[in-house]
Each structure stands twice: as structure tokens, then as C-alpha cells.
Simulated assay, not measured.
Amino acid sequence: MTNADQSVTTSTTDRQAVIPPPGRFDAETEARLDGIDRDATKHVEDNRPEKTRNGYAADWRAWEAFCRETSLPPLAVRSGTLVLFTEWCWIQPGYKAGLFMAPSTIDRRLAGVVVTGRRQHRLQLAVDVAEEARALLKAKVKAMEKAGEQRGRGPAPALLVRHMEKIAATLPDNLSGVRDLSLMTMDFAIAGREHEVGWLRERHITEDPEGRGLIVDVRISKNFPRVVQVPYGSRAHLCPVRSWRRWREASGIGADPDGFAYRRLHSRYHTVMEAGLDAESVGDVITRLGERAGLDIRPTGHSPRRGLVTESSRAGNPDAVAEKQGGWAKGSKVMRTYREDDDGFAENALHGVL
């Protein structure tokens, strides 16, 4: 081999040695890409609804507390540790003295831990990493129901049309009453979540060009942002279109289209303030309306959402209609549980028999 040949071989070998493996780059580029990844994760998290962010943060704090008690590293999110976490959650106190944590809360804790592990800590977790933990939780729920044990508050009761009739009859004839009627009927009409209603801006609620009602652009949503068409109601006193127009005119919020659609009212002067209603405040309004009307249920901020599904089912509307209205995924099992209690009368073996 000549010196030239040896030089070429050495040069080629040297060049091959500095070629990074597939998908890897030099240290400076890798550091920059890692920074972009971190910023992207933070940007996505910052654009999630506040309630979702707070929920995930609470789930991870519970996981960290479990890890401290069991001397496990917080990043050890595995099938077995999630099973142990489920057992640990099962004996934790719930929201009310004397009650333990609700199964739905534990299920959400599992989801929050897995999501946080993947997104914030870059853990490579299997799709079914929580499968065994949820199987254990399901078995515990069956045993709980068999024993007649009560955990948590249970599902929110549905706010039905008959309930809203009673509420409307008790509303004061002032700005507070006008706002609360519009908030309640709008919440019902769009099958809204508390944070969806609280985050609505005045410009997100527009008149249909053909005069058929309102077009509501739900920009901030836990799952799927959506545009909801809200037609006129057959009951003028419960019509979401008419009540919105009355609130918009009485409050003067039309002068600030970027402002919140539903505002706080000054506690003393009852004037409209710039601040909007957060998710908890929206729920508080619905609960307060139910208490004032002396309803046979204690409605929460989720009650109008359940109520629309129930009333829509009673009216014979297809499930797909309610799914679109409330932003559920196609074939949502959760949405169908909202009308399960009512199915026994709509579909009954006694029809046409007695």
C-alpha cells in the first residue's frame, strides 16, 4: 500500500469516526434541541385550561407523597408501582370527613401520573402501563357497591328543564338575575363545562347571519374546542338566545368584545366588573340558584351538561347530536352514562304490554 493509499484510508476512517449516529447530533445542537423540547412542553402546558393543569399537578403531588411513604423514586412509574399507588389511594380520606377517596378521583390520579410522567419527565411508558391498576380499581368498586359503601360526592345530578323552570321563577329582577339566567341557559345549551363558560369572551358569542339564533365559539375546552349553534328556545323565559341578548344589553359588555362574556358583579353596588367568573364561581352560581329555588337536587357546575344529554335523549335526538354539542368524542361512553338512569323508561319491556 502506498503512502497515498494509506493517507486516503486514514482520512476516510477519520471522517467516518465523526459522523454521529442516526438521530443524534453534536453536543451544541443536542443542547439546543433539548431546550426547544422543554419550551414546547411548557408552551403546551401553559395553554391547557387552568383546571386541567391544577388537576395534573395535584395528581403528581399525591404520587410524590405515595413515593415518600413507600421509599420509591418518583420516576418509577411502572405497572407494579401504579397498582401499589391504587391501594394507597383507596385508603386516603376523601373530600368529606368520614369518607374515603372516590373511585373516579383515583382513576383520574392514575391518568394524571401517567400523563405527567410522559410529558414533563419524558418517561417512555407503555400504553397499557396503568391497565392492571385500573383492573384492581374496578374490582374494588364492585366490592364497594356490593357492601353498600359510599365514597365521594357521586355524579352531579342532571339539571332538567323542570328545574330551570323553578329557578327562573325565583330570580330577582335585577342585573344579577339577568346574568344568572343567561349563564344557566347558555351552560345548558352548549352542554358546557364550568371552565368553558367562564372563559367565553363577548366576541365568541355572535348572531347567526340568517337569524336562527346564536353561534358560540368554545375556544377553551378540556378536550375539543368546538363551535356550537344555539337556536331559539320554545320557552321564551328559558331561551338562551333571548336571555343572552338581555344580559348583553343590560350589562353593556358589548362595548368590550375582548372582555369576558359573564362578569363578576360588585358586591355592594352590583355594577359589572371587568373580571370574569372562574370555573369554581360558575359552579357556585348554579348551586346557589338551585338552593334559592328549593330544588329536590343540589346542582353543581356539571349539572347543566348532564341535563342537556338527558333532555336531548328524552326528546329522541341521536347520541351524535349531543356528542357534537358538548364536545365529546364519537361513541363516548362517558356521555352515555349521563342518560343511563333515563333509559329504563325510554326503552322498557312493558311498552305496549300493559
Rank of each mutant, 00 (worst) to 15 (best):
R339M: 05
R292D: 07
G326V: 05
E249W: 01
C89N: 13
A17C: 10
T300G: 10
P304G: 14
G276N: 02
K138C: 04
T170N: 13
R108I: 05
L354H: 03
A133G: 00
V129C: 08
P20K: 14
L265G: 12
R61C: 08
I215M: 00
G198R: 01
F85C: 13
K42I: 15
G344I: 10
D341R: 09
T29S: 15
V227N: 03
Q16I: 15
K140A: 04
I19A: 10
A191N: 05
F188P: 01
A279T: 05
P257E: 07
D217W: 04
A135L: 12
V83G: 08
R235Y: 08
Y95S: 13
A97H: 07
A130G: 12
S313M: 09
G35Q: 14
F66L: 14
E64L: 15
L214Y: 00
A168D: 11
R305H: 07
S332A: 11
V77N: 03
R48Y: 14
T13H: 11
I215P: 00
I205C: 02
R226Y: 09
Q92R: 15
E340R: 13
C239S: 02
R306K: 15
A126T: 10
A147I: 02
S221N: 06
H266W: 07
W90P: 06
T300C: 09
V83N: 04
F260V: 07
G352L: 07
V127M: 02
V18A: 09
A168T: 07
V197Q: 03
M164D: 08
A250H: 05
K324M: 07
V115G: 02
A143H: 07
K51M: 07
E291F: 10
L123P: 03
P225E: 03
A322I: 03
R24M: 13
L171K: 04
D342R: 01
A169T: 07
E131S: 05
V114T: 09
D278C: 08
K140E: 01
K138M: 06
T170Y: 10
K42M: 15
H237E: 10
Y338S: 02
D319S: 09
T271R: 04
R24T: 11
D342H: 10
G112P: 01
E280I: 14
M164W: 11
D37A: 15
H270I: 05
R226W: 08
T287V: 06
